Simulated assay, not measured.
Amino acid sequence: MKLRGKRALITGGSSGIGFAIAEAMLARGATVAITGRRSEVLAEAANRLRQNGHDVESVAADVGTEKGRQTTLEHALDKLGGLDILVNNAGGVRAGRLEDTTEAEIRKMIEVDLVAPIMLTRAALPSLRASGDGLVVNVTSGIALVAAPFYATYAGVKGGLAKFGESLRRELKGEGVQVMTVYPGATDTPMMSSSRAGPELGFTREPANAVAVAVVEGIEQDAFEVIRGGEARAKMIALNRDDPAALDKRFLDLKPALAEAVRDHSAL
């Protein structure tokens, strides 16, 4: 897909990976609408994106709610005049032991990270079909490929989103709408600011713009998926498939330090 002239809606576009994807798409000639919950942060992000004369729309709404999704989509369709690309990027996380995670935190992750992208995609499909060259981009996580301890719910919802995308890709095959799944590794974003896990625990962070460049390249190459983390991630995926017990042992050795490092990791 060529991005020039395409109309894209990016959820969670006020910061982090979503903002970087918006920047990268605008640089390729797309028109973009971003959404986020915090109106002041969103307005500032939209102004930054407009600095180079780019056409950017914004809508303050919570896609974790039915009303927020409706507002988001209606605004984007009205301002963009249609929709070619939906980027499901908004998400939240709460790390820690499952027993220490509240029901409210668990439900929030399910609603924002899984229910919201499914329902927003469902609502956007008629417009994406009308485009004739539509695309859904689901931003999941490397944890959906290799689950780490203390991220049980987050791994569950991100893994669910990945399989949702795989199934939908096959469902829409030959119908003018593609689906691409993105698996970022640890990324230097506000969402990761409360985590103290570093390279010694396998959380080597890369800039959000590096992820965004890979996403745009994947779109232009009609890729099914974009997996970040390079050779190290590929080896972990292979080990998780071929000898998961060995990976269990590796995590067992890291558990005490990892538990402490992610104890306060929360972005909901």
Score class of each variant (00 low, 15 high):
15 S>K: 11
40 E>L: 15
6 K>M: 05
177 V>W: 03
160 G>P: 05
44 E>N: 10
248 D>N: 06
206 E>K: 14
140 T>N: 12
208 A>T: 12
92 G>C: 14
129 R>N: 03
176 G>Y: 08
229 G>N: 05
203 F>A: 10
161 L>G: 02
62 D>A: 14
157 V>Q: 01
251 F>T: 01
216 V>R: 03
91 G>V: 10
105 E>F: 10
48 R>D: 14
248 D>L: 10
104 A>T: 15
268 L>N: 13
199 P>W: 04
134 G>I: 06
208 A>G: 10
31 T>Y: 12
200 E>I: 11
186 A>F: 03
156 G>R: 00
116 A>H: 05
117 P>D: 07
34 I>T: 03
176 G>T: 06
139 V>Y: 01
94 R>E: 07
77 L>H: 05
29 G>I: 01
3 L>V: 12
75 H>W: 13
40 E>Q: 14
215 V>D: 02
190 P>G: 03
232 A>P: 12
178 Q>P: 01
120 L>F: 02
256 P>S: 09
145 L>T: 10
211 V>R: 01
266 S>D: 11
23 E>H: 09
51 Q>P: 03
122 R>V: 03
65 T>W: 13
255 K>C: 09
252 L>E: 13
76 A>H: 04
148 A>N: 08
218 G>M: 02
250 R>S: 11
191 M>W: 03
236 M>N: 11
85 I>C: 05
264 D>R: 08
259 A>H: 01
16 G>N: 06
85 I>Y: 07
221 Q>S: 10
59 V>D: 00
209 N>Q: 15
43 A>S: 14
80 L>K: 13
15 S>I: 00
152 A>C: 05
90 A>R: 04
23 E>I: 02
139 V>I: 15
65 T>F: 11
81 G>T: 12
267 A>R: 09
68 G>H: 13
130 A>C: 04
236 M>P: 04
194 S>E: 05
178 Q>N: 14
52 N>Y: 12
143 I>F: 07
207 P>G: 08
80 L>V: 10
102 T>V: 12
123 A>H: 04
234 A>L: 15
140 T>E: 04
15 S>W: 04
259 A>T: 00
204 T>V: 04
80 L>Y: 15
148 A>T: 10
241 R>M: 08
186 A>V: 03
257 A>P: 00
22 A>G: 06
215 V>R: 01
8 A>M: 01
224 F>C: 06
18 G>I: 09
10 I>A: 04
254 L>C: 00
176 G>W: 07
69 R>K: 14
55 D>W: 02
192 M>H: 09
15 S>Q: 14
177 V>E: 01
8 A>P: 03
63 V>F: 13
240 N>H: 13
28 R>F: 12
92 G>T: 14
216 V>N: 03
176 G>C: 12
261 A>F: 04
228 R>C: 15
114 L>K: 00
239 L>F: 09
81 G>C: 10
37 R>P: 00
145 L>G: 08
7 R>M: 03
253 D>P: 00
192 M>Y: 10
166 E>D: 13
136 V>W: 00
160 G>R: 10
256 P>M: 06
184 P>K: 01
69 R>T: 08
63 V>A: 09
143 I>C: 07
31 T>I: 11
212 A>F: 11
261 A>V: 08
68 G>E: 12
28 R>A: 11
256 P>R: 07
59 V>H: 12
83 L>H: 08
218 G>T: 01
143 I>Q: 06
259 A>Q: 05
20 A>C: 07
261 A>C: 08
123 A>F: 07
267 A>M: 11
11 T>D: 07
93 V>W: 11
